[in-house]
């Protein structure tokens, strides 16, 4: 009986956690060699016309407070270690979004000697938002899609817990 209750409790807890995670994604922005184009569009998403706070997204200053790392630009020689460090400073669970052609593939800067590659050669990326630069609407759409996939993943975990409790019951 106690284990069943425990399972139910775990399941509920998991659902609450997922709900909170999906509804309160705080982001930090790191430019690892971008031309600014993506950066100003990201900044534009928090301003009145787009207002990302509607979805609970807040731009944070400290990596410790952030859930989502928004990366722009190709990765330059000097930015590589900084990018890794910012990623490591973030507490789990954390997600990475690569914004713009350069972040996805190096874009127009492929082959430049100062560029070591694109974001997913340095840290794992969860979502890609293409464009040079992507419009603010596209960035918001990308983030919302990421949240949607979190929701689905969270439900899957909760489902597993439910399945486990069912087997325990029988």
């Amino acid at each position: 009986m106690a284990t069943i209750l425990g399972k139910k409790w775990d399941e509920a807890l998991e659902q609450v956690k997922t709900w909170a995670r999906v509804n309160s994604p705080w982001a930090i922005h790191f430019n690892s060699g971008s031309c600014n184009g993506c950066d100003i569009e990201i900044l534009a998403t928090v301003t009145p016309r787009y207002d990302l706070e509607r979805f609970g997204v807040k731009l944070q200053g400290s990596p410790r407070h952030a859930d989502i790392l928004i990366c722009t630009g190709p990765v330059t020689l000097q930015a590589r270690d900084r990018l890794k460090r910012v990623y490591e400073q973030m507490p789990e669970p954390k997600f990475v979004v690569a914004v713009g052609s350069c972040a996805i593939s190096g874009g127009v800067f492929q082959g430049c000697y100062g560029v070591v590659g694109h974001i997913d050669q340095v840290i794992p990326v969860d979502a890609y938002i293409p464009g040079c630069p992507p419009r603010p609407e596209a960035i918001i759409d990308g983030l919302v899609k990421l949240l949607g996939s979190l929701q689905a993943k969270g439900e899957a975990t909760a489902g597993e817990a439910r399945h486990d409790s069912a087997t325990a019951h029988s």
């Binding site: 800067f109 430049c112 000697y113």
Partner: peptide, 26 residues
């Protein structure tokens, strides 16, 4: 130098028209 990509060098390796798009992305 955190954003130093090496565009001046890259410009020497691309043709005049390609450079227009490269330099626009400085």
């Amino acid at each position: 130098g955190y954003v130093h990509r090496g565009i001046e060098k890259a410009a020497e390796e691309r043709n005049w028209v390609q450079d227009l798009y490269l330099l626009e992305r400085i």
